[in-house]
Design a protein around this nucleic acid. Structure first.
Length: 223
DNA sequence: GGCCAGGACACCA
DNA sequence: TGGTGTCATGGC
């Protein structure tokens, strides 16, 4: 598929999603640090369960890097138990807090003053931060024009018939970033809209027409 | 009762 | 490089 056509389709999908769902107001958090925490906690977890964990952290006054470093890991695990994988995620939060303190003195300003690409590489070296989490942090906490790819994105685009040359995270990301303007607001809204759509479609049946919700999407997207 | 959520990592061939 | 097991709660 040529570049112009891909670009047109991607923009058209966005237009339809925005017209249907409106602005999503992402990321649902009060501070950039809360965005980062949420990005780690939401790994393979339902957001409703993450919200409870965030509330627990707030109540315990543990939603800051210094507190995350000080609190014993098992105690932290109990605070975030609702979002699952609590032991693994407690370790991840502490790993980030350590790295953030050592490298940037807990300063978000200093962190995001780093150029996007080197910063992404640095984030990927922190235990518990993979590509999607790194990009969520860059986009939603740092306002960097980076497109976030997740399982919903692949599933929806696959169904629409758009596929990258390389079926990898980077391949999918390139598909969006090569064919859309590097616009923070657009990337923010687009990913959020794909998640909203993803939550509303049938995940178990890949064939259009078998699932009423899926049919709905096809009609909605005119595909 | 089973499936799966806004993934990442360790280990293996 | 790619495939598989593991981590684990809560909602439907």
């Amino acid at each position: 598929m040529d570049r112009l056509k891909t670009s047109r389709i991607l923009k058209d999908i966005y237009r339809r999603l925005f017209a249907s769902y409106g602005p999503q107001h992402w990321w649902p958090a009060e501070t950039p640090f809360e965005v980062i925490t949420g990005a780690i906690l939401t790994q393979s977890a339902a957001w409703t369960n993450v919200e409870k964990a965030i509330q627990n952290l707030k109540q315990a006054k543990a939603l800051n890097p210094d507190a995350l470093r000080r609190i014993p890991q098992d105690k932290l695990a109990k605070l975030i138990h609702t979002c699952g994988y609590f032991n693994a995620k407690a370790r991840k939060l502490k790993a980030f807090a350590e790295w953030f303190g050592e490298g940037y003195g807990d300063s978000l300003e200093r962190l995001f003053a780093v150029e996007t690409n080197p910063l992404r590489e640095k984030l990927l070296r922190v235990h518990g931060i993979g590509e999607e989490t790194a990009d969520s942090i860059l986009l939603y906490a740092g306002n960097k024009p980076v497109f976030v790819i997740d399982a919903y994105t692949r599933r929806i685009m696959d169904r629409v018939g758009l596929k990258p040359t390389k079926d990898s995270y980077g391949g999918w990301q390139k598909l969006f970033m090569d064919n859309l303007d590097a616009d923070v607001k657009l990337f923010n809204e687009y990913h959020a809209l794909l998640v909203t759509l993803g939550k509303n479609i049938c995940k178990t049946r890949p064939q259009c027409g078998q699932c009423p919700l899926n049919t709905d999407i096809c009609r909605h997207l005119h595909v």
